[in-house]
Amino acid sequence: MATLSNKMNAYDEMLKGIWRDNPVFVQVLGMCPMLAVTNSAVNAIAMGLATFFVLVSSSFLVSGMKAIIPKQVRISIYVIIIATFVTVADYTLLALFPAVHKELGAFIPLIVANCMILGRQEAFASKHSVKFAVMDAVGMAGGFLLAMFALGSVREILGEGKLFGISLFGENFEPWVIMILPPGGFITLGLLLLLFNWVGERRKQFLAQVAAVD
């Protein structure tokens, strides 16, 4: 383990989730909450934070207990752990922020079905030390939160002319209603992904040019 941690930099593990291995833009995981609750920036952030909480706590627990979890039933145990944290998040939100909970509705329990969370347990947390598992989870969940926020703010800005409920363009702004409707979710995420691809492509070209000059 000691040699392994020398090779790995915990901050790299964290950062890769935010851009290079972004769970939404690169790995295309967690699409359901990504689209369902991003009709406003607040909802997107609330959902992102709930996911953040579940992912980081589950990763912490799974990597901490990896020695005592029998291989054959590991998936079931991961699911139980995740479901527990989701229930915790669900009740906490319901108690503290009933308005947000009402908006997110059925999609909080559905965090359980977010393949990103189970995927991280199986692919990373169950194989690494607590420190790395948590860092990885923070990175992934951070990337997810960022993507949620990006989509949520675009949809809210165009869809209502507001951000976090604050009017941006004055009274006369004509809202783009489609943005808060399901098709708007699909199309906006599609276009964001396109933008992400395009930026990646341009970056690659730029790097290639730099390399050629050198």
């Binding site: 098709p183 708007g184 199309i187 992904l193 396109l194």
Partner: peptide, 15 residues
């Protein structure tokens, strides 16, 4: 080529 993949599928789904 830039469009092909998930972005494209999402836009089809959107329409």
């Amino acid at each position: 080529a830039l469009v092909r993949g998930t972005a494209f599928n999402l836009i089809i789904a959107g329409i």
